[in-house]
Amino acid sequence: MQGKTGSESWQEVWDKSVNGPRALIDCWQEIPCDPCQEACAQGSIVLSSGICAPPALHAETCNGCGKCVAICPGMAIFLVDRSIGSGLARVTVPYEMRDEIRLGGEAWAVDGEGNYLAEGRITRVSGAGRPGRTMLLTIEVPEEWALKVRGVRGRRKLLEEPEEVEAIEAVEDFAFCRCEEIDYSRLREIITQGEFRSLPALRRFSRAGLGYCQGRFCQSILRSQFLADCPEEDREVESFRVRAPVRPVKLSRLGGEDG
């Protein structure tokens, strides 16, 4: 029997989870990743066409062991268990934060955007205190949230929205190359004048990147500014002449008393 990928499998997970936990996989992008398939002893997770295929779940044979939840590098697999009845579901999530979450304590169940869904009791904690292990937390929530829960949080405060401010005045000038004290406006002026059509020439003239740090801070931005401001048909994208030493070295090393 074929499994189903992404949200198409969720209806089946919902149906089968009345019998016990089932894996809910929230992974539908084509990315090169397959540990869930390797971890599943039941053979219930299958990547149909190579390592980039999204995992397909066969909810009938899934036994809810949770191995895939613990190993998924994207932390994108959960367990849903509706077997406890009375309108409640247990959802298991992978957890790698430091909040104190205790067995029997209360925590928040949140959705994929971090929005509060419900407060619930933590009914199972596994892998705690074992370095390198991903903890699995099981939280009890009203059944209607079972497919929506993506995380568990201690009651950490929610972020306040950033303040909207008036549009600011025109950008003031700022340092481009700190070592040689070249301002951004000066560098752009040199580039747009169009006399220097290769990076080495631009560097020689402007001195940007030739100071103490030897371009470690500004070389990449010098290149992107050059690419942005110098018309494509005019420019040569050539390499800087690289000379030793490519890393700072003490002069005493090169010619000290014992040199």
Partner: peptide, 15 residues
């Protein structure tokens, strides 16, 4: 980046 990485970040309430 990968949606699953974004998912991990967003569920922690990071916009």
């Amino acid at each position: 980046g990968y949606q699953v990485h974004a998912g991990r970040v967003r569920r922690e309430g990071i916009p």
